[in-house]
Design a protein around this nucleic acid. Structure first.
Length: 508
RNA sequence: GGGCGCGUAGCUCAAUGGUAGAGCAGUGGCCUUUUAAGCCAUUGGUUAAGGGUUCGAGCCCCUUCGCGCUCACCA
């Protein structure tokens, strides 16, 4: 490990501590209180004292040194643990000349330490630990990349800190250590997942785990990552969705199933795409897409209540209102309103392409009808859908797993939910006719050239499962990362992933 | 993958083509109620890497690497 000048100074302190018989990385710590508990205990003591003399509140705290103000014969510092910060007060009267010197010479910002003493209030009123004993728990060799911060009305204000996004993502541990609001994002994220589980568990959904390594991938249109099992001499794919496995379980007799887990898609990285991302999918027997819309509204509302305590969500300068039913927009009508094209009047790719060009919009020549519609949707409708909106009734040729609308062969019962100008979820009345499903797979196969990476293999076993009888059902998929973006007001998916994907860096 | 922008001390940032700087952090002092503590002094740079133009390059040109934004791609 190459040491910087600052690190060399600390390295020498480690050696010096060992030389004087002090272990800089001791095996055990023995805190009695968290920072927050110590403050609460002192406040309780004050409340009970009632003008009488205060009972002694003796505590031992463990945490990271976050500030130091040495003033000769006294020193102030702050110690921070997972619950918050407490000020430390050290005085030569209490810990002696040796103690003052040990702290001043060998303890640095970022070190984990233990401090014991009694709680009191300083002249300025801050609840503080008057230290009578302290020790090193873990010496920080590298200085944390933060300069200084202050506490104003209980809020930590940093005057200079780590902001370079590259360092923040590559060294997320340092980002988390110095930026408390980043720590909060991932607490919120955990609360979101917890609330979803709670909602679905309460409605008799069974949480399951299905294979991540799959011999045949499917359930979405995406390029997979490929890997190989050596002993079996078999290529395997990292799943791009859970859909086909979860629906097999409906055949097996579980009527409501869900899975929260990682999907992998070998595609571009953007503010809303990461090669691996967290997905929720659920399938509900005897439901159709209308029921799934209602379930979606309830579930997102429940998550807002649990995580934020309100259904008004601030995102990207907008106040998004999850308190009522989501707006419902017919995809065909929405396209008539926004681009002035009625897709029902253009039932072939050629015809639709001509209509789009007539509007002065550039498109890739020879695109299939479904892709053209999806393109219009993405360019002209999606960015305008700030408030929660269900766009429904999609073209059949881009929805091979969805059931047709009755008496409308070109359209399927599918919706996508949009919030904040971003696609959040995708759902449909699931196709459960095995012969129809086989025909759809074959249609899809024809739509791609033989060497197209997005061409999907036929999943015969899935058809076999469906042949045993699959109950009618409604299915749902949602990007958890995007929901967390909404609820934490972050514009990029990297901010809600602990370790987002970054390009590899050459070793030095 | 394309376009645009960025990369300077540990962190946050300066520097007309003309001696690479500041604040904080660090180091050495002073200081018994501070909280961005204060005061005095002081260390620290392969200006992302490599090449070129020039009397002279952090700055101009080329290549590479990384990051950001954006476009394309993404049922």
């Amino acid at each position: 490990m190459e040491l910087s000048d600052l690190e060399k100074v600390r390295f020498e302190k480690i050696n010096a501590l060992r030389a004087m018989g002090v272990e800089p990385y001791p095996t055990r710590a023995n805190p009695t209180h968290s920072a927050a508990d110590a403050v609460r205990a002192f406040e309780a003591a004050e409340a009970s004292a009632n003008g009488e003399s205060l009972p002694v509140v003796a505590v031992t705290l463990a945490g990271r040194l976050r500030s130091m103000r040495a003033m000769g014969k006294i020193t102030f510092a702050h110690i921070e643990d997972g619950s918050g910060r407490v000020q430390l007060f050290m005085r030569v009267n209490d810990i002696g000349e040796d103690g003052m010197k040990l702290f001043a010479d060998y303890f640095d910002l970022g070190d984990f330490i233990e401090a014991a003493g009694e709680m009191f209030r300083t002249r300025t009123g801050e609840i503080t630990l008057k230290v009578t004993a302290f020790s090193m728990l873990a010496k920080a060799l590298s200085p944390l990349p933060a300069a200084k911060d202050e506490v104003v009305d209980g809020q930590v204000v940093r005057h200079a800190t780590l902001t370079d996004p590259e360092v923040r993502y590559r060294q997320r541990y340092a980002d988390l250590a110095v930026n408390p609001e980043v720590r909060q994002i991932f607490r919120t994220r955990a609360a979101v997942v917890r609330a979803i589980r709670e909602f679905l568990d309460d409605r008799d959904f069974l949480e399951v785990e299905t294979p991540i390594l799959q011999p045949i991938y499917g359930g979405a249109a995406a390029k997979p990552f490929v890997t190989h099992h050596n002993q079996l001499k078999q290529d395997l794919y990292l799943r791009i969705s859970f859909e086909l496995y979860l629906k097999r379980l409906l055949v097996g007799g579980y009527e409501r199933v869900y899975e929260i887990g990682r999907d992998f898609r070998n595609e571009g990285v953007s503010f809303k795409h990461n090669p691996e991302f967290t997905q929720l999918e659920f399938y509900c027997a005897y439901a159709d897409y209308q029921k799934v819309m209602k379930l979606t509204e309830e579930m997102i509302g429940h998550v807002c209540d649990k995580v934020l305590g309100t259904r008004q969500v601030e995102f990207n300068g907008h106040t998004i209102d999850f308190s009522g039913p989501w707006k419902r927009l017919d995809l065909r009508q929405a396209l008539i309103d926004t681009v002035g094209i009625d897709i029902d009047q253009h039932l072939t790719g050629e015809s639709l392409e001509a209509a789009i060009r007539a509007k002065g919009i550039q498109v890739k020549p020879g695109s299939p009808r479904g892709k053209l519609i999806d393109g219009l949707l993405g360019d002209y409708i999606e960015p305008t859908l700030i408030q929660p909106t269900f766009l429904y009734d999609y073209p059949r040729d881009i929805s091979p797993l969805a059931k047709n609308r009755p008496n409308d062969p070109g359209t399927v019962e599918r919706f996508e939910g949009f919030v904040g100008g971003m696609e959040l979820c995708n759902a449909f009345t699931e196709l459960n006719d095995p012969l129809e499903q086989e025909a759809r797979f074959k249609e899809m196969g024809r739509a791609y050239e033989a060497d197209d990476e997005e061409r999907h293999p036929m999943d015969e076993d899935y058809l076999q499962a469906m042949s045993y009888g699959m109950p009618p059902n409604g299915g749902f998929g949602m990007g958890i990362d995007r929901l967390v973006m909404l609820l934490t007001d972050r514009r990029t998916i990297r901010e809600v992933l602990l370790f987002p994907h970054l390009r590899g860096r050459e070793e030095e």
